[in-house]
């Protein structure tokens, strides 16, 4: 400890304190040339350690490398993401508070509350897209239904004797849209998580299930379930062999999508700079492999594309919420 660098003299500490005051004063106006001027917070709507948290932390780490700034993850769990979204919308619009979440469920939430705390179209500003990941129609490995056509034929015949498992709001609305397009009325059985539903899917207690992308990939790999179709409008790069429901004549195009947002009113140049950071991370092969492991395709998009997607999703969500007959809180 005799190294002179470690000797903190009175003069040095005064100088340090002065520098700190100066830099914090300089940080007040959000100008792109000195952005990021302090720690960036990535807001995550799920608890620390959860599957979604892993994704947010991956980007926090990668963006921190690219931007050369410290990025921390703030977990604001609860109310299906409303708490985190509202927290972001009320933060200073200087680009230091960034919300990473599924835009599809943010749009859905707007219609699930009688007094939604924010309007995602006007209170949040899109920064960058992240990925697209659909839910899938799956059956147990021992199910007699080999293809989506088999399942469709069975469901038309069985009527309300058939049943299916859902978990998560996205799963519920895809299930409702599928049944509606097919003109059938099977019984919906809900589960808290995809894992909860697994025993009943495997034992064929339910005829099929609407499964989230992560569970679909894992269970197919382990031979527990068979994936019959994707809810997306076009085939996914991550699962090129899985047909879409559109291919069998059902008009369904539902895709979950992740993106990053900042509070509305964040200056253009800050948004563009942040978009550049995300773009650089998303172009890495490592990132695309990581996103594929979560069951989705990488999506590189501009802020305008994210905003446009949100407007589209909010419109669609209204129709879907009515279709699935989801009540409002």
């Amino acid at each position: 400890m005799n190294d002179p660098i470690f000797k903190l003299t009175r003069r040095k500490s005064l100088a340090l304190a002065g520098a700190a005051i100066l830099s914090s004063v300089a940080a007040l106006p959000a100008l792109a040339q000195d952005y990021p001027s302090r720690t960036i917070s990535f807001v995550c709507a799920f608890p620390a350690g959860s599957g979604a948290d892993v994704l947010v932390r991956y980007f926090a780490q990668a963006v921190s490398e690219v931007a050369g700034a410290t990025v921390i993850v703030e977990n604001k769990a609860g109310a299906a993401g409303n708490i985190a979204a509202e927290y972001t919308a009320r933060a200073d619009p200087d680009g230091h508070t960034v919300y990473l979440h599924a835009g599809s469920s943010t749009a859905m939430n707007y219609h699930l509350w009688n007094n939604p705390p924010i309007d995602p179209r006007s209170d949040l500003r899109g920064v960058a897209a992240i990925n697209q990941q659909p839910f899938y129609i799956v059956v147990g490995a021992d199910s007699p239904h080999q293809t989506i056509e088999d399942l469709n034929a069975y469901l038309r015949e069985a009527g309300d004797n058939a049943s299916y498992a859902t978990s998560a709001t996205s799963g519920r609305v895809l299930g409702a849209a599928y049944a509606n397009a097919l003109g059938v009325n099977p019984v919906e059985v809900q589960y808290r998580t995809g894992t909860d539903a697994l025993p009943d899917i495997v034992s064929l207690a339910v005829d099929f299930a609407v499964s989230d992308p992560v569970q679909t990939m894992v269970n197919a790999r382990e031979g527990r379930t068979r994936t019959l179709a994707t809810g997306a409008g076009t085939r996914m790069q991550v699962a090129p062999d899985i047909p879409t429901l559109a291919e069998v004549g059902l008009e369904i195009d539902q895709i979950g999508w992740w993106a990053a947002w900042v509070p509305a009113g964040t200056p253009d140049d800050v948004v563009m700079k942040l978009n550049g950071f995300f773009r650089e991370v998303l172009e890495r092969e490592e990132t695309q492999t990581f996103l594929a492991s979560m069951g989705g395709d990488t999506w590189i998009g501009t802020p305008e594309e994210v905003d446009a997607m949100m407007v589209r999703s909010v419109d669609e969500a209204q129709y879907l919420v009515e279709l699935a007959d989801l009540p409002k809180n």
Partner: peptide, 13 residues
């Protein structure tokens, strides 16, 4: 999907 007995406190979701 409805909230029960939370009396407007979103944290009780």
């Amino acid at each position: 999907g409805l909230l029960r007995f939370s009396y407007g406190v979103d944290e009780l979701y």
